[in-house]
Amino acid sequence: MPTIDISDEVFLAVAPAAVAPCVADRAAWRRWWPDLVLRVDEERGVKGVRWSVSGPLTGSMELWLEPVLDGTVLHYFLRAEPAAGARRSAAAETRHRRLAARALAFELRDRLDSGRAPGCPPGLVSNEER
């Protein structure tokens, strides 16, 4: 089992086809993971992306887009080993990467799901915003 083994998920109330272009945006990768060197292993379209990771970590990472109900569950997986001479402990690195994954998920939620009234299907806004 890798030293860093993260699995996280968040629901986005938009279809995978709306999330996929954001996940495929290479400029966003630099923003989300500025210190990692990513090599695409598999571009999966509306199902997400898989990478090999190098730099301060060596391993694999994936964003998997799963259609669920009227939206998408964004799954994040990172399985890696810290590079020799790592600045952070494995526990601190795991925490750092978990927080980064949550920031990515909430960025996408804010961008793609903003204005939707809680409990309403995608595309509907609250009465206060009308």
Rank of each mutant, 00 (worst) to 15 (best):
P2V: 03
P2I: 05
I6S: 08
I6G: 06
I6K: 08
I6L: 11
V10T: 14
V14C: 09
A15R: 09
A17S: 15
A18V: 00
A20C: 04
V23E: 01
A24W: 04
R26A: 15
A27M: 11
A28W: 13
A28Q: 15
A28I: 11
R30K: 13
P34Q: 11
P34T: 08
L36E: 05
V37N: 14
V40S: 06
E42C: 11
E43L: 12
E43F: 06
R44V: 05
V46F: 06
K47E: 13
R50S: 11
P56E: 02
L57N: 00
L63K: 05
L63Y: 13
L65S: 01
V68D: 03
V68K: 09
L69N: 06
D70K: 09
G71S: 08
T72A: 04
T72K: 02
H75C: 10
Y76M: 06
Y76F: 15
F77H: 03
L78S: 01
A80C: 03
P82Q: 02
G85K: 05
R87M: 08
S89C: 05
A91S: 10
E93H: 02
R95L: 15
R95W: 14
R98E: 15
L99K: 11
A101S: 14
R102H: 11
R102N: 10
R102V: 12
D113L: 03
D113R: 02
G115Y: 07
P121A: 14
L124P: 00
N127C: 09
E129C: 11
